[in-house]
Amino acid sequence: MILSVLGGVALVLGTAYGWTARDHRDAELAALTDRLAQVEARSASLSEQAAQVSELEAKLSELEAALVAAQEEAEAARQAALAPTPVIESPAESEPEEDTVVAVADGLEFGDPEQGKAVFGQCSFCHKIGQGAQDGIGPHLNGIFGRRAGAHEGFKYSEDMSMMGADGLTWNLETLNAYLENPKALVSRTRMNFAGLEEEQDRADILAYLRQFSASPQNIPEAAPTAQAREVELPDDILAIVGDTDYGEYLSSECKTCHQQDGTDEGIPSITQWPTEDFVIAMHAYKQKLRPHPVMQMMAGRLSAEEIAALAAYFGNLD
């Protein structure tokens, strides 16, 4: 194709200038000679490129083989980490970076811890996790894998949760998966006000996230606990108000038309035994209309900071 185009150009040039036949042949010869040189040069270049391509292809195969090996190694490391006796190994080294879903016993799976961190957002108002995490409305979740249900010292569990623990319920992948899917199906009168995570993938992801904070201290990243920024910024003097429990008891009678004292929470959450600061922050979030529920916005809307503190003091210490 290139050759025929070049020939065509030479022919057109010859005709246009009205050269003699000899001139024309000489010119044609010269042109052909030039063209031969060009073709030879190009051929050499192509050969060189072909060699480079082969070389690159070989390198690529090598790299792919290395990658497969690395994945297999990582998988083995992760399986080892899931074994009952954890291998002491930093997750950063052992975890591959892909969103791999790793199958374990009973068909249950750990998902993606990064996704799980996002799903955990809805739990984090009540449950803290990570270095320095403290109990809040719910117990902190460091070391939840392998922990006996209702047995974390210093936290006041529902009667049912304590009983399940006493009966031998221990948190592992299987039991946590069942509890997260439908908390009340596993522990009928748990105080945890959560309907459950319907999506299997969400549960797999969140369990992968929780797993990072369990089993061996080396597995706990040096990150700050999930004590995220407060929902509402409250001046210290508001948080410092010491609630009048008697007044709180009277005010609580209004709450108890809907919120049951014993922690029952069908359709309406339990507010019994919330830590006072969490209670105060939640009520101010309703008062400032940051939380959306219209009944609660209305109820909190007409409570003063002292009245909110009184309620927090009363409910926080309720049996």
């Binding site: 009678s253 108890k256 038309t257 809907c258 049951q260 069908e266 359709g267 309406i268």
Partner: peptide
């Protein structure tokens, strides 16, 4: 609706 069921249980207990 589910909230109303919770309210019924709450107020009758109250």
């Amino acid at each position: 609706y589910e909230e109303s069921i919770g309210w019924y249980e709450g107020i009758t207990t109250d």
